[in-house]
């Protein structure tokens, strides 16, 4: 590089705004389509389990408590999720959404990575059923 070009470059860079974003202090707006944590709203869920069938990483489980009464609980494993949004694509009733704000998911404890969605007492039921069953966590790792 010629010295004149270089000096010009240096001067221009001095006048430019800083390109570093002071991330935790200052935040950029989250992109609208950003694929963060999966969110399930089971009001319209029919239990077709299309979301489960085509998940490439086995990250979601749909627990049927009472099919006729449409009582379902979704267990979502963040630590397996590849954030591909195929489940969102598959759901015909729009029950699934990927949050565009909840993406800072780092945690020291893996138990934070298993999330239950559904009505509160349904979740309790599903949890106790899980605790009672001798079946280990399916295919962890």
């Amino acid at each position: 590089m010629k010295i004149t070009t270089m000096l010009g470059d240096v001067l221009r860079s001095l006048l430019r705004p800083n390109s570093t974003q002071q991330y935790p202090a200052e935040r950029q707006p989250d992109p609208e389509r950003l694929r963060g944590k999966l969110v399930w709203n089971g009001e319209k869920c029919t239990g077709c389990a299309l979301c489960v069938k085509e998940c490439p990483a086995l990250a979601i489980e749909l627990i049927t408590l009472d099919k006729a009464a449409k009582r379902f609980v979704m267990r979502y494993h963040i630590y397996r999720c590849t954030f591909c949004a195929q489940c969102v694509e598959n759901c015909r009733f729009g029950c699934l959404q990927m949050s565009n704000t909840d993406w800072e998911l780092a945690a020291a404890d893996k138990s934070a990575f298993t999330v239950y969605y559904g009505k509160e007492h349904d979740i309790e039921m599903a949890r106790s059923a899980q605790a009672a069953s001798t079946k280990p966590e399916p295919a962890e790792g």
Binding site: P31, E32, R33, L34, R35, T82, F83, C84, A85, Q86, E89, M98, N100
Partner: peptide, 19 residues
């Protein structure tokens, strides 16, 4: 990221079209 929602693995393709 603005177009597809992810910076690296865009997952924009689906069989039969795009998302």
């Amino acid at each position: 990221e603005g177009l597809t929602g992810n910076r690296v693995n865009y997952s924009a393709n689906v069989l039969g079209g795009v998302k």
